[in-house]
């Protein structure tokens, strides 16, 4: 009985286009909901999570000396052999890298160099905008690596920014939580 009534109800619904109307009302609601689009290069820039593995950077110690001791463990562990280190002895008698080159075109950003480093000298940062027209530009030397931005203490978030790959500036953010991609998606 109830099933028959349901069938009749369905037919009545079809007659008055209930299904089409519900579809229309759904899209109408979506039309006035917030877009999920992140206007990446123009207005917003996503600062990745702190665990994100982006461009490498070399750290300095308290005296401003490079932390790296040129042990070449990173070059040894690197699965794609993209790190090249040549050591030298500086005036204080410390072992330091004379040449420290990372071929970011070959690098797969696994972070093993960071794990292997005994001096906590190399780490993978959060910079992700370093595409280039020439693969030669992607071979990064020691001084460039020292100048690369470190990790921001806070997690990811959307910050209003202008795309600025020249200055290598990452924007600090106050948003503690990472960018929740799904927060704007309506669910029923």
């Amino acid at each position: 009985m109830s099933r028959a009534r349901n069938t009749i109800g369905t037919w009545i619904g079809w007659t008055f286009f209930a299904d089409l109307a519900s579809g229309l009302s759904l899209t109408f609601g979506y039309m006035f909901s917030r877009p999920v689009t992140m206007q990446y290069p123009d207005k917003e820039k996503w600062l990745p999570y702190s665990r994100y593995r982006g461009h490498h950077f070399l750290k300095r110690d308290e005296e401003g000396e490079i932390k790296c001791v040129a042990c070449e463990l990173c070059a040894r562990i690197c699965p794609c052999y993209c790190i090249e280190v040549i050591p030298y002895e500086d005036e204080k008698g410390n072992r330091r890298p004379a040449k420290f080159e990372i071929d970011t075109a070959r690098c797969l950003f696994c972070g093993l160099c960071e794990d292997a480093c005994p001096a906590d000298a190399i780490a993978l940062g959060q910079q992700y905008e370093f595409s280039s027209f020439s693969s030669r530009d992607l071979v990064i030397g020691r001084d460039d690596l020292l100048a690369k931005p470190g990790k921001a203490a806070t997690g990811g978030g959307v910050v209003s920014a202008r795309l600025n790959t020249k200055k290598d500036v990452l924007v600090e953010t106050n948003e503690r939580q990472g960018y929740n991609w799904w927060r704007n998606i309506r669910r029923r």
């Binding site: 979506y30 039309m31 909901s33 877009p35 999920v36 689009t37 123009d42 998606i185």
Partner: peptide
């Protein structure tokens, strides 16, 4: 624009 907003995009913006 309507297409974009119905699909939760923004449509042409640039």
């Amino acid at each position: 624009k309507i297409a974009g907003h119905i699909q939760q995009r923004m449509g042409p913006m640039r």
